[in-house]
Design a protein around this nucleic acid. Structure first.
Lengths: 199, 199
DNA sequence: GTCTATAAAGCGATAGAC
DNA sequence: GTCTATCGCTTTATAGAC
C-alpha cells in the first residue's frame, strides 16, 4: 500500500470541503478520516486541539483567501477593477452557487458562538472593503455603506436560495443583478486623474 | 409536583425554538427535554419517528404559518396590501433579525438532504407568491419574477449577515431597502376602487 | 401520557506501537 | 508521521413501571 504523506497545508482544503458539506457537527472524525485518507492519529498530530482547531484553521484559511483575492484589492486597488474582480472571484469560489459559504453556514449554526469573532471579522471586513472601493469610485459615503451591505448580504442570500431550490441559476442571476445595482457613477475622463486614493 | 399535560400542538413551538437555536444536529434530546419539560417518553409518544419526525413536523408548521400569513394573501389578496403585510409579518416573525429562518438554516446544513423537498417548496412558493402579487400590481412578468427572487433572497441574506455581525439593524435596514426596491408602479386613482381585496 | 432506566451506536479524544 | 485499539461520554431510541 502506498502511503501518502501529507503536509498540514495539503489537508486543510480537504478538511474545508468536509465542513462545508456537513457543517461543524456533521463533520465527524470518521467522515474526515474517509475524505482526507488520514487516520485520527495524523489528524491529531496536525491539529492537537482537535475538531475545534481544525475548524478554526479552516476559517482562518478562508478569511486569508478572501483578504488576498477580494478584500485587499477592494481596499487599495483601482476600485472599479477590484469590484469587477470581486464578482468574478466570488462566482468562481462558490462554484456558481454549487458551493456554500462556510462562514455564512457557521453563522446560522449553533457553532456560531464558538467562532463568533472570526465570523464577524470576515463579514465586517468584506462590507467595509467594498464600501471603501465604492467611495473611491465616487459614491457618497452613506450610499457606499448601504450598497456594500446590500451586495454582501445578497451574495449570502443567493447561496441560501440557490441551495434551497437546488438551482445554480438563482446564484448566477443574483450576482448579475447585484453587480448591476451597484450605482457606480459614470467614469468621467477628468475624475480619473484627480481622485485616485491609494487606501 | 404539578405535572403539566401537553398536547402535541403546545410542544411544537417550543420544539421549533430549540431547532432554530441549535440546528438539527445541535438540538439534542436532552436539550429538547430541558426546554419543553417533557421526558423522552412523552416526546416519543408524540413523535414516534423520533427527531426526524419532530423536525419534519416543525417544518410543516412553519410552512403552514407562512402560507396562512404571507403566501395566501400574496396569491389572492389585494397585491399592494399583501406585499405590505409581508414585510410586516416577516419583520415580526424573525424578531427584527434576532431569530433566524429555520428553513434557510436547514438548507445550508447537512440536514438539507433529509428535508430537501420541504425546503424547496417553502422557498419556491414564497418566490412564486410574491411574483404573482407583483404581476397583479402591474409589474411585467419577467420583472416580477426577478424582483420576487431578489426580495426573498435578500431576506435570507439579511438574516445571515445580521446574525454574523450580531447586529439587528442590518436586518431592519435590509427590509426597508428591499421593500423600497420593489418597483411597484404608481397606483392610479381608477384602479383603486376596482381592485379591492379584503384579505 | 409521563417517567426512569437502559440499550446500542457513534462521538471526540488519547495511548502507544511502529 | 501514521496507524489501531480503546477510553469515556453523549447520542438516539426503547422498555416497562406507574
Amino acid at each position: 500500500m502506498t502511503r501518502t504523506v501529507f503536509e498540514k497545508a495539503d489537508v486543510v482544503p480537504l478538511l474545508a470541503e468536509v465542513f462545508r458539506e456537513f457543517g461543524y457537527e456533521g463533520a465527524t472524525l470518521n467522515r474526515i478520516t474517509e475524505r482526507t485518507g488520514l487516520g485520527k492519529g495524523s489528524l491529531y498530530h496536525f491539529f492537537p486541539g482537535g475538531k475545534e482547531e481544525m475548524a478554526a484553521t479552516i476559517l482562518a484559511e478562508v478569511d486569508d483567501w478572501f483578504v488576498r483575492n477580494v478584500y485587499a484589492p477592494l481596499e487599495s486597488g483601482e476600485p472599479r477593477a477590484a469590484i469587477a474582480r470581486m464578482w468574478k472571484e466570488v462566482d468562481a469560489y462558490f462554484r456558481s452557487g454549487r458551493r456554500i459559504c462556510l462562514v455564512g453556514a457557521f453563522a446560522l449554526d449553533a457553532t456560531r458562538d464558538k467562532f463568533a469573532a472570526a465570523i464577524r471579522v470576515y463579514f465586517a471586513r468584506w462590507v467595509a472593503a467594498l464600501a471603501s472601493a465604492l467611495r473611491r469610485a465616487g459614491v457618497a459615503p452613506d450610499k457606499a455603506a448601504a450598497e456594500a451591505e446590500a451586495a454582501v448580504l445578497g451574495i449570502q442570500g443567493a447561496l441560501v436560495l440557490a441551495r434551497a431550490l437546488n438551482d445554480e441559476k438563482v446564484f448566477t442571476r443574483a450576482l448579475t443583478r447585484l453587480a448591476r445595482d451597484l450605482s457606480l457613477p459614470k467614469r468621467s475622463p477628468s475624475s480619473r486623474s484627480t481622485k485616485k486614493g491609494t487606501l
